[in-house]
Design a protein around this nucleic acid. Sequence first.
RNA 1: GCGGAAGUAGCUCAAUUGGUAGAGCUCCAGCCUUCCAAGCUGGAGGUUGCGGGUUCGAGACCCGUCUUCCGCUCCA
Length: 513
Amino acid sequence: MSVKPEDFFKNIISHCKEYGYIFQSSEIYDGLSAVYDYGQNGAELKKNIREYWWKAMVQLNENIVGIDAAIFMHPTVWKASGHVDAFNDPLIDNKDSKKRYRADVLIEEHVAKIEDKINKEVEKAAKRFENFDAAMFKSTNARVLEYQKKIDDINTRFKTALNENKLDEVRQIIIDCEIVCPISGSRNWTEVRQFNLMFSTAMGSVSEDASTIYLRPETAQGIFVNYLNVQKTGRMKLPFGIAQTGKAFRNEIVARQFIFRMREFEQMEMQFFVKPGTEMKHYEEWKQKRLAWHLSLGLGENNYKFHDHLKLAHYANAACDIEFNFPFGFKELEGIHSRTDFDLKQHEQFSGKKLQYFDIEQNESYVPYVVETSVGLDRLFLSILSASYKEEQLENGETRVVLNLPPALAPIKIAIFPLVKKDGLPNLAESIMNDLKFDYALSYDEKDTVGKRYRRHDAIGTPYCITVDHQSLEDKTVTVRSRDTMQQERISIDKLFTYFEDKVSMKSLLKKL
RNA sequence: GCGGAAGUAGCUCAAUUGGUAGAGCUCCAGCCUUCCAAGCUGGAGGUUGCGGGUUCGAGACCCGUCUUCCGCUCCA
């Protein structure tokens, strides 16, 4: 393909708009940044992807059930999850290098440097003395104590500043510590600003009585807070999973790359509850299962790779991403995390309710460990669309724009055309349509030459076109033209249903798993 | 928030040193009846992102403003 990568991505974005897949939100009012709407075809494709995921997770796994938790949740949920604190990053800019940093990271790195100094002192001393007692040395050596006092002072100040939301003080700490920008080397800092990464709104119609609640930044917490409800009412035994799809919201500073980063996006998550100690086995298992699910779409094995997290979040003991080869490079598509018992323990603590599982074999109760699979539906949509989008050079020199979507996911499965708009061909086409419409998403088109109609549906990604011609009136056969091969074959009208069944049904895709 | 780019018809783009907005495609109606986007006729569609200024006259020049896109940060 001779198209430059950045142009290729631009072409995909225009294609999405031109063919009713994705529109900018509120476009007639000049749009809203990082928010997009799904059009008539986009909504179908998205729904089909979601359905494929849901069936693969819930319907094909006896020990997984699905829920649909509300977007609004009790504010304490987000205290327990750590989002209230962790998602309030204080940011600071260096005026010379124009680089932005997280103020807390700058301070933490500074503290880490001092800790390094302590360690060096300890190492030096260890070489010097036999029977060296590190703990003793740390608690007595004057220089170490001085360093340690510095660290403690900084940490105390920083904690207080954050708790009291005093951003001036955070900046003052950076200045007092003489922290410099790693790029410019200068101490020319802006004031510290805080960016709310969670959207908040007010619940309660009377403003004085209203309380702040958040739009969920992830769907997972809706599963955790319902874990015991589902386990009890569903009589679930470990290991078991709870799946959920739904919107999540992040009030990011800016967002880029089309629907790859959006303020409002949809997640498809499954939290798998397991016996402590078995989590790594399940983690590995889900890595493979989820990769197999992606590969079943047939977009090319080389477009996927695992990316193991070296630096783990505080709640995880193993984590990786499945990355996809987007037009702008390999980027995260799905995350698989071993989240330990962190979330449930946090909710036990904040709610004061026991969230334990009674293991009848061991005759004891414990908080289960959790293995999470979390995929972005919009990202999945983009991965499928961008891998399917082709600008083909045909033998006759023409170009053809085609979406080679997995047939089972295509918004329209079959388009039906009368070859010409007379001689009763439209009637026959309509009657075929009326037979098939209960099983397949169809589209009828009688405008323009048939070649033009084929190309139009190539661009939408419709895998098959049925054309009714004069021969159809005589022998009750039609031509079926394939999007991918552009080949036609003649099929008897009464065999159409079975002809298409294994080609475009969700069932055929699920059977590959 | 900072830096850069850009806003003219549904889409892609024109409009000379400032002289009252035009083409192709799309769309709609009709003709033609044809198996891979290209036939014919007619038609619709724009307060040039918005507001102000300069000027006899602004799509163009100046100021402001809004929005989008790209980069920095964050992230599924």
